[in-house]
Amino acid sequence: MPYLRLKIKQVLKSKFTWISLIAILICCLSFWVRNYYTSKSDSMELTTAKSNLAIQKKNVKYFQKELKQKNLDVDSKKQIRKTLKSSQADIAEKQRLIKALKSKDWQKAYPIMIKEARFWLADADKNGSNSEAVAISKRDLLELQTLAKQHLPKEQTINPVKGSFFLIFVMEQFLPILVVLATTFILVKIFANDYFDHMKLGNLLPNNRLILSEFSTGSLISFSYFLVTFLLIFLIPSLFAGTGNFNYPIVGMNPVTREYTFIPMHQLLLPILILELLSFIFISGTVLFFVQFFKKPIIALLFSVLILVGGMVLPQFVVAERSFAQFIPMSYFFALQPVNGLFGISNAYAFADETELVTYPQVNFTNGVIVLLIGILILLLLNYFVAEKAQKGIKES
Rank of each mutant, 00 (worst) to 15 (best):
W106P: 01
L152H: 04
S164V: 15
F166H: 07
V134L: 08
L147G: 01
I168D: 00
V134K: 13
L152E: 01
N130E: 09
Q173C: 02
P111Y: 08
A117G: 05
A92M: 09
E93P: 01
F119N: 10
V161C: 00
A124Y: 04
A89T: 13
A109H: 06
A100Q: 13
Q150M: 08
I168G: 00
D140Y: 06
K138H: 12
V170G: 00
A133V: 13
V161N: 00
W106M: 10
W120A: 10
A135T: 06
L175R: 03
S164L: 15
P111R: 12
L142A: 15
L175N: 02
G128Q: 10
I98Y: 12
S87M: 11
G163Q: 08
A135L: 03
V161T: 11
Q95E: 15
D105P: 03
D123T: 05
G128V: 12
D105Y: 06
N130Y: 10
Q95S: 07
G163F: 05
Q173H: 11
H151V: 14
I136K: 11
K126R: 14
H151N: 13
M113T: 06
I168M: 03
Q107R: 14
I91K: 02
A89H: 15
I98T: 10
P160L: 02
N127S: 13
F166W: 09
K138Y: 08
I158C: 00
I98P: 03
S164A: 15
S164Y: 14
Q156D: 10
F166S: 00
R139D: 04
L167Q: 11
Q150I: 04
D125P: 00
S86A: 15
S164W: 14
I112L: 15
I98W: 09
L144Q: 11
A148V: 10
N159W: 11
G128E: 12
A122T: 13
P160F: 12
K94H: 10
E93F: 04
P153W: 06
L167C: 00
S137R: 12
L141C: 05
K162F: 01
H151Y: 03
L121I: 12
L142K: 15
Q95T: 07
F165W: 02
L121T: 08
E132Y: 14
K108P: 03
E132G: 02
L144M: 14
S137L: 04
L121A: 06
L101A: 08
K102P: 01
D123P: 04
A133F: 09
A100S: 15
G128W: 10
A122V: 02
Q156I: 04
V170K: 00
E155W: 04
W106R: 09
N127K: 12
A117N: 09
L142E: 09
S86E: 14
K154T: 01
P111N: 05
L97F: 09
K149Y: 07
I112C: 11
M171K: 03
F119Y: 14
V161Q: 00
S131M: 04
L97W: 07
Q95A: 07
F169V: 01
A124W: 09
V134Q: 05
P111H: 05
Q150W: 08
L97A: 03
Q145E: 15
P111D: 01
N130H: 06
S131V: 05
H151F: 08
Q88I: 10
S129D: 12
S164Q: 07
N159Y: 14
S137F: 04
P153E: 03
K99P: 00
R139T: 05
Q173N: 12
